[in-house]
Amino acid sequence: MRPGEWARLVAVFAIVFAAVSVSGVVISGVFMPQPPSEQPTSPGVLAPERNLAPTPVEAGSIEVNGTTSQQTILIDAAHQNTQVRDRAQVLTDVLTSNGHQVSYYNPENKIGQFENRVSEVDAIVIIAPTQRYTQAERTALNDFVNEGGRVVLFTEPKRTSVNLFGEVTTRVRTESILTSYAISAGTGYLYNLNGNVGTFQTIAATSASNQRLAENVENVTLYTSTSLTVGDEATPVLETQPTTNSSTLRSNASYTVAARHGNVVVVGDSEFLTEQNYRKGDNEELVGNLIEFLLNTD
């Protein structure tokens, strides 16, 4: 073989070797993935249908069954009762439209007044008083109950709000009244993070007994409720779902939120009474049952 032939062979080898060696670089350059274009940034996590809270069902009206002569119902507004006008409005409307008298108790000078007034009425409604009852008032209330008068008391957990001066805690003062009826109210609020029907403090409750008070009450919606502890002499009326939690106890349980002791009924929430809330779920059934209890037609 001539020397020129060897040079040609070396050149062929070099060209082919170089071409194959750099082919990876060329191919990767040609087929290198381009920077991805902008894609929609909202993943399924933010999809409205996944997150938007359902609108609660509002239906029905309050029906008061049974007949009775005209009665007078006293609504206590003298113990710094929380938003008593708003919360008692539906009760007032229904009682008035059924021919009964509703009287708000809020005298300028309270001394001796409560004792006199309770003797003139047939039933008493107490909504979240934040001022203590005096010994004389408690005695008058007990006498009223013992003589057959009916009382419905709405309590609630302590509330913390913020104003310009900082945090303000409001505590309902019902403990001294309730001890006479084997019922005690908690200070913490109830909440449910599994299937709650509003924010976490909006909870569902259902009947806990066969009492007339719990009739047709399968799904009550409560907004800021506390739990009730019930002694042997009292009877639970409503209880929460087992997944309900307490802000103070921090454990899941079915908490009692309404209970009865003879002529006294205690409910752990009063916000469900408002015009905005009384038609949610079976709330109107519960309100109707409570009115019948007050009128002694249950």
Binding site: V12, V16, V20, V22, V25, S28
Partner: peptide
């Protein structure tokens, strides 16, 4: 002879290609 040289060059190039690509990258 030429065919043999080309085949050897192809094999050698294929072996070294990934290293060259990585080095360039």
């Amino acid at each position: 002879l030429y065919l043999g040289v080309i085949i050897i060059a192809l094999i050698a190039g294929s072996v070294t290609s990934p290293y060259v690509t990585r080095a360039v990258d």
